[in-house]
Design a binder for these strands. Structure first.
Lengths: 171, 171
DNA sequence: TTGGAAAGTCAACAAGGCTGACATAAACTG
DNA sequence: CAGTTTATGTCAGCCTTGTTGACTTTCCAA
């Protein structure tokens, strides 16, 4: 009777709803704010040296994840305008980090790839970011990490959650 | 024997280190990226209507949390330059959302407060953000939420973690 | 009384968002 | 085949929010 068919482990019975107080929610909000700063801090430092920004990092990351992705697909994932993305892609292509190839089936499309140099930079950036995440995961332990992932997925917009799910398993 | 005195539940024995693979870390990184977009989406929409930005939201939030905070303290928490913060504070003061009072003990300091109008806007913004977090928490359940908080705390820079801890309990 | 901290201001600049308009090539459709 | 839609790129201009550097005012404390 108290069981309302929730998708996950949530049981909104009368027992234990203290984790839904405004105070708990505020802590979560502040934790997201402070943690995101840490999350981007290490790559940001490296990017600064190379005169790139966070936008370049995001492009490199998702091209690395989904080689041969199209510009439109990247626009969808990143949620910016094509003008914004184009500015970033242009510099990455000029600097020889990204390659753009005309589509075979549909020659209007451009498929994006990392060059060797692009892969090198992507590796440095993502390793810096992974290092912090690895330390955090190790400290918190596997069960905390599972909860971390669950909550983050629920915070996402449904449309972005789809992109996330697609990236989840291999590619 | 496998117990190495870690501060938390992590037991880096041979059993179960699969949560530390690069692939798991990548998923965490992408989850942070997508979730942060959702996290800011609702307040951003409201701010757009009022011609404010995220920087205004952050200032309102932390002045609300710590009434009578000084500009310097706020700079420390927000991690921006005083010129950047000053621009935001000036518009908030001009618009009658924030009040700045000269310090009594140290008259160089300015103590910041929300006006009634400031509190109103802060409430609208934070309630929009809490709504999404509440739904996410409810879906994920209390244990997931605990893990979520643990991992986020570990991702923070130590200095920011101190600020976070101070805000944790009342104020 | 003097040094330095706290705060504010001005100017200039950059990254990275945005809109709108327009161009081109390719693909699709009737 | 003509017309429309799609994918991409580009130009121009604007906004927010970050930055640095220089300078002033206030005023506490040694």
């Amino acid at each position: 009777m108290a069981e309302s068919g929730s998708t996950s482990a949530a049981r909104p019975g009368a027992e234990n709803l203290l984790f839904l107080t405004d105070d708990q929610l505020r802590r979560g909000i502040e934790a997201m704010f402070f943690a995101y700063r840490g999350f981007t801090a290490d790559p940001d430092r490296i990017l600064l040296e190379k005169s790139y920004g966070r936008a370049h990092h995001r492009a490199l990351h998702f091209i690395h994840r989904s080689p041969a992705t199209t510009v439109n697909n990247l626009l969808d994932i990143l949620g910016v305008t094509k003008q914004s993305l184009n500015r970033v892609l242009r510099t990455l292509i000029e600097d020889g980090l990204v390659e753009s190839k005309v589509g075979k089936r549909d020659r209007r499309e451009r498929h994006l790839f990392l060059t060797d140099a692009g892969r090198d930079l992507e590796r440095v950036l993502s390793e810096a970011q992974r290092k912090r995440m690895r330390a955090a995961y190790r400290e918190a332990g596997p069960e905390a990490v599972a909860g971390f992932q669950q909550v983050l997925q629920q915070i996402m917009d449904p449309k972005l959650r789809e992109h996330f799910e697609q990236l989840k398993d291999g590619h």
